[in-house]
Every structure is written in structure tokens, then in C-alpha cells.
Simulated assay, not measured.
Amino acid sequence: MTAIALLSVAPVTEDSMAEEVAKAVAALDEFDVSYETNPMGTVVEADSVDELFDAAQAAHEAVDGDRVGTFLKIDDKRTREQRAHEKVDAVEEVLGRDAKRER
């Protein structure tokens, strides 16, 4: 997989967004992508940018609401295969520890 993206889809609402965000995440299951949801979005990995766009569009359209905001940030590594966890592993190697801290 060479295309990695950060996807965030959210309805504009005062209530909890969990139900609508769950719809967006579930929509990704229809595509040949890997993903991991975190508190600020979902990291999506695919073999091509086209697959990322298609999956992101489906996630966006799965959310109900009068207004939906979607953010898609793509890292299209064209020189070699790279997984999202490898990017984190590289930072942790330099740090000499996990790139995580609990308060």
C-alpha cells in the first residue's frame, strides 16, 4: 500500500457525532482499504489515491445532516511501499520510546 490518508467526516451538530461518524467508518468496509479510527479522524491505507477518494466519498455521503464537513489529507508515497505504522515506527526509533504519553 502506498497511499495513506487522514480522513475526518463530521456533521455540523451540537449533539454527539458518534452515530454519524460510525456510519462514515462503516462505509469504508465496502472498499479494499485498511483503516484505524482515532479520536481525531481515521487513518486509511489503500493501493491507490483513486481508492482513497472513492472510500472518502462514500464515508462523506454516509453521514446524514444539513451540513457535513470532510477533511482528507493524503500522503501518496510513489517511490516505495510504506504502511502507516512504519511512519510511526520511524519516529519512535528516533525518540527511543513509544510516541505516546498518558497524563
Rank of each mutant, 00 (worst) to 15 (best):
V9L: 09
V88K: 00
E81M: 00
A3T: 15
S34D: 12
V25Q: 03
S16Y: 02
A46W: 07
D89I: 00
E51Q: 15
A5W: 10
E45R: 03
K87I: 02
D89S: 08
T79G: 09
V25L: 06
H60C: 13
A26L: 10
D50H: 09
Q82F: 00
A3W: 01
V21H: 06
K23G: 09
D32E: 15
E81W: 00
Y35V: 08
R83P: 02
A3G: 03
K87P: 01
R67F: 04
D76N: 12
F53Q: 07
S48F: 04
K100F: 07
T13V: 12
V49Q: 14
E93G: 10
E14F: 03
D47I: 00
V43Y: 14
A24E: 11
A84E: 10
T42Q: 01
L72V: 15
R83C: 07
D76Q: 04
V44N: 04
E30D: 15
L28C: 03
K77Y: 03
A22W: 08
S16D: 05
V68G: 05
S48I: 05
A58H: 15
A27R: 13
N38E: 05
R103H: 12
K87R: 08
V94A: 09
A56W: 10
V21T: 10
D29E: 06
S48R: 07
E20M: 06
L7W: 08
A24P: 08
L95N: 01
D76R: 05
L6Y: 14
A62T: 14
G69F: 13
A26H: 08
A24I: 08
K87W: 00
T79K: 04
A46L: 09
V43P: 01
D89N: 04
M17S: 09
A27F: 14
A3N: 06
E81N: 04
E51L: 15
E19H: 05
S48P: 11
